[in-house]
């Protein structure tokens, strides 16, 4: 018998939560019996998306913002949604261009989206300026054994 599975967490947008966020998603993904490389991919992609919420989305916010992470497993595919209610992105195409960063003074490399793209099968970014951003990462995992 197969059931879809999911979890949802919300975290304050604090940098000390970056490691917890990627660990939580990779622990959830473990039920699909991923390879060590796949776990590394998932951790890197989640880390990039969550860091962007912390570094960019709430950069001008007077209060600590919220990051919402939803992960869903359907068949052998993991869908991860990382959402903030921050400043949004005016020009998504420009934002996703490798090496583009709006914060060079903070030593951002402008490679977050490039890492997400290379680590996932699919990357979708939707954003409304002033309202927030949602990044959806899709990772296909070839289950060694269907439960």
């Amino acid at each position: 018998m197969k059931h879809d599975n999911y979890f949802k967490i919300t975290l304050p947008a604090l940098s000390r939560n970056e490691s917890f966020a990627r660990a939580a998603v990779s622990a959830f993904a473990a039920q699909l019996d991923p390879t060590v490389d796949k776990i590394g991919d998932i951790k890197a992609a989640v880390s990039e998306a969550v860091t962007n919420c912390i570094v960019h989305a709430y950069a001008d916010s007077p209060v600590v913002g919220v990051v919402e992470i939803t992960a869903k497993i359907k068949d052998d595919t993991l869908y991860i949604k990382i959402r903030d209610k921050g400043c949004g992105i005016d020009d998504i195409k420009q934002a996703m261009t490798p090496l583009f960063t709006s914060k060079p003074e903070e030593e951002r490399a402008g490679l977050g989206f490039a890492v997400m793209e290379s680590c996932c099968d699919k990357l979708k970014v939707t954003s409304t300026p002033g309202k927030g951003t949602t990044v959806t990462l899709t990772v296909r995992l070839d289950k060694k054994e269907l439960a």
Partner: peptide, 8 residues
Amino acid sequence: FMDSSGIG
């Protein structure tokens, strides 16, 4: 573990 922050 390393993400693009390591590149920065």
